[in-house]
Design a protein around this nucleic acid. Structure first.
Lengths: 153, 153
DNA sequence: CTTGAAAAAACGCGAGC
DNA sequence: GCTCGCGTTTTTTCAAG
């Protein structure tokens, strides 16, 4: 059902590096005609391998210069779904994961400045199921990139 | 130079939610003609506010089901640029940040499975400037989304 | 400086093979 | 998976606010 061959990988690579390239351009890069590329892309979208296309925005330019990673410790045992439901309404939460180790979850926060970050942290800490948080403020973004096309997979 | 008004924000929102939408579609959403939208998008690309367009890929589908966050502690004082240069060659590193607190950096790793993750961690620890690492393995992805259009910015 | 309208050129998308 | 053809879109040029 979700078979992804070498050509699909190359098509995905093209789209990751430029989501607005035309089917003809992709076809030229992978050695297929434009309609053939479109059919594969449609299939990849159907099967969920491709989840969509988005613009990469400079966070600084829109006033999202400050970010932090927050270890979240919950009260007692909480289901992942419950944590997700509680984090979803907070707009500063750009990512969240349940993790191994002492913490229950890691939350990635993005805010416009330190003050906004503080506000977001207060709101996060006021969430019922959350007991305690440990914040790590990001000083500089060193690297941020899509996963490599593939490798030893 | 990098003035971004309300219409630009709405155009960016459209492109973030679907990078492949046509200029006519965007124009209809923001109340501009297609050429006017294109000019603004070109300008946003020129000024670096928009950095490009990419496909959102399901990590599972390409064999990137396992990820981890790693606190990196360096030997002595190391410049951010040096850390970046040392991390860039490692394909499993999808993001890295210098941070406040005890650690020097947080590295986001993505691997195909636990074994691959272990290999990647070994390679990471073998980097000269790195003294010690503390790994946190991700159990489940709760949330992952682009920053909200904007807010109290 | 920005917009809207109209031109040619390129692209998307279905049918047929 | 490829070719063909029609309708739509993009993109450039031009004139106006």
């Amino acid at each position: 059902m979700l078979r992804v061959d070498t050509i699909d990988h190359r098509i995905i690579s093209c789209l990751v590096s430029n989501a607005r390239s035309s089917y003809a351009e992709i076809g030229a890069a992978v050695g297929l005609s434009a309609p053939a590329v479109k059919r594969r892309v449609d299939r990849l979208l159907d099967t969920g391998v491709l989840q969509g296309f988005t613009a990469v925005v400079d966070p600084e330019a829109l006033g999202w210069g400050t970010e932090a990673f927050v270890e979240v410790h919950c009260r007692g045992n909480v289901a992942p779904g419950e944590i997700k439901a509680n984090l979803e309404p907070l707009p500063e939460v750009v990512a969240a994961y349940t993790v191994s180790g002492a913490a229950d979850a890691i939350v990635h926060l993005r805010a416009s400045d330190i003050h906004h970050l503080e506000t977001a942290l207060e709101r996060l800490r006021s969430v019922e199921i959350i007991d305690r948080t440990v914040s790590t403020v990001v000083l500089s973004r060193l690297l941020e990139r899509p996963p490599a096309p593939d490798q030893q997979a």
